[in-house]
Design a binder for these strands. Structure first.
Lengths: 345, 345
DNA sequence: TTTATTTGCTTAAACGTTTACCTAAATTTG
DNA sequence: CAAATTTAGGTAAACGTTTAAGCAAATAAA
């Protein structure tokens, strides 16, 4: 339309005919092969440009047995963590001129398994993933890895698969957060977490427990409450029950949407944050600073984690001398102290 | 590993050999062709399952000249709108057993154009997109459409392309929001928006102006301020300047991250929301209700928009009798009133 | 000058499907 | 019972690349 060309498919055959050379010459010229003379190369490139030739990726993938495509396998895009991580991943995918297929597991093992089955077709050259929280049988992952598809985990890693893992220091962050609450005078801290229990939440729970243990405080079962992994009124109700029963003076919320749950539960119970109860939450949302009160958060390096994971995968894919199984990277999270944990005057 | 099979590629040839039939028989049997007898079909399906046969998508795409893949072209995944929209899209992509490639334009026309060039290879069967805000020359979109690739716009639509468009009522929502502020007693309302000006922001501005005009209030140039489209301290500073100069008693923030910008600017200026200045923001974040004060928002049907866009695209792709160019759907946003626009007692 | 090497290109097979067309046997029709 | 049709499959080409192998001409080496 904007140019003179019709929408007839122009492929290598077309170019070959126009330039009166063989298809092989076209292919090699475009890939800058040493086989082709400089002037021919130029002529090929020029006519390719003129005729708006765009290579067919599927023919290429079929023949080369590689797709220039990676998979991003994550539970969902509901929170800011994965949004930011995807942006980090994309920043590299873009540079490498790859494509990214997105697979959302909805945190379900069954779906994750199906998706791995799909990927066993050679659809992707590599995988960046955060495992579903109820994935225990990891044979689908092992199978694909054995089949030669490199995998890099980020955030929710699978410890039993020998490959690169990009984590943040969940144990330590929770430890820091809990210690911070203790420093601020809390004596009875509850952990609000979610069902299904991905390993990172386990680490957070352990960091929490360690901080308590260090100060000789017993972490009794009752101080832990599990919510469903999406924002619901049921969660608010459950948390209210919990608070009324346990009467905690501090709360660690382990995932983003639990911040809202916690704040609303406290509000409904007429509990003042931070006077009656102090709150820390794992979240990356910029609104943390304008909450009522501003929320003390554990800020995770989401973008950097996605980016680093992608970097490692591409280092491997592009044949750099790197052993994925040796890469075990921990990027630190940051405790950002705000008023939700302030000691009242 | 978990099964007896090695990682040797099993393809139709393998199955054909094992079952002593032709490759064509395998192919037809697996696609449930009428050509093949029921018992043969069963045998094929059974051995395919046994040998863990997974069809090669690239061979199939090459031959069929269609990829079972769609593109999601969006500016970024930075805010909750696009996160939720993607989830809506995925809910349909999943059902249809398609795949979704994600293209982030970073709101840049140049990148968008490159991506369309990439897609002109036949890589995708259809496109779901929100156009970049600085896209004015739309020939890249036209070209692809003319080449037969169906496109469905959502949110940031391109009016000049005759195809399906899923929007929300930006004009009306902004009108409602502004009227609401006026009802709450505001006399001097500023519009905080972003540079680059996608069409939806234009609509929001016009809704804002209409509400003012209706009450015979002049919307002077100075009441509009443009920020960069990411959360920065510069934006906060600029907004502070603006507020000090114009002294608005009401603010409409047109995109999500401007809520934080606005709240922080007001805080730094020691302005009380809502007593000194009332605020409404276009955002889907659940934290709106726990802000200080809770934020009156325009809640957009992000998930539904993504879902509906995908539905229309697939209706078209699966040959349903539907004319994309006739589909112009507007899903309503909702004004959720909270304390940031409350009239002081 | 003869031989070896390099340059620049071509031929043809391969990647794994799908499908138009063909065929032989089985079944139905008149 | 012959002719027509249906059933159940096979053959081979095609989709658009990439690449191993080959080859003639030009250049370099001996």
């Amino acid at each position: 339309m904007t140019d003179g060309s019709k929408s007839n498919k122009v492929n290598m055959k077309t170019l070959a005919k126009v330039l009166n050379v063989s298809i092989a010459t076209i292919s090699k010229a475009l890939r800058d092969s040493h086989d082709i003379g400089d002037d021919t190369k130029q002529r090929v490139i020029e006519t390719a440009r003129l005729l708006h030739y765009v290579p067919n990726p599927y023919a290429s993938s079929l023949r080369k047995r590689s797709s220039n495509t990676i998979a991003i396998v994550i539970p969902e895009i509901a929170d800011s963590f994965f949004s930011q991580a995807i942006n980090g991943i994309e920043s590299i995918v873009d540079i490498e001129k790859y494509h990214a297929l997105i697979y959302l597991t909805h945190d379900s093992y069954e779906r994750e398994k199906q998706m791995f089955n799909d990927m066993s077709s050679g659809r992707v050259d590599g995988i960046l993933m955060s495992v579903a929280s109820n994935t225990e049988d990891i044979s689908h992952i092992q199978d694909l890895q054995q089949a030669g598809v490199p995998i890099v985990f980020f955030d929710r890693v699978c410890e039993d698969i020998p490959t690169a893992k990009i984590k943040t220091d969940d144990f330590n962050s929770a430890y820091m957060a809990t210690s911070h609450l203790l420093d601020q005078g809390c004596k009875n801290i509850s952990l609000v977490t979610i069902e299904g229990y991905p390993s990172i939440l386990q680490a957070r729970e352990e960091g929490y427990k360690k901080a308590l243990a260090e100060r000789n405080i017993e972490a009794n079962e009752g101080n832990s409450i599990s919510c469903s992994n999406k924002y619901t009124n049921e969660n608010i109700a459950a948390l209210k029950d919990h608070i009324q029963k346990i009467k905690p003076d501090g709360i660690i919320a382990t995932v983003e949407h639990l911040a809202t749950t916690t704040y609303l539960a406290c509000e409904e119970l007429k509990l003042n944050i931070p006077d009656d109860i102090k709150v820390v939450c794992f979240t990356n949302q910029i609104t943390a600073s304008i909450l009522n009160p501003p929320l003390t958060t554990i800020l995770q390096p989401a973008y950097e984690m996605g980016r680093k994971a992608a970097e490692l995968l591409f280092d491997h894919l592009t044949g750099k001398p790197i052993q994925l199984e040796k890469e075990n990277i921990v990027l630190p999270s940051k405790l950002v102290v705000r008023n939700s944990t302030r000691i009242p005057d």
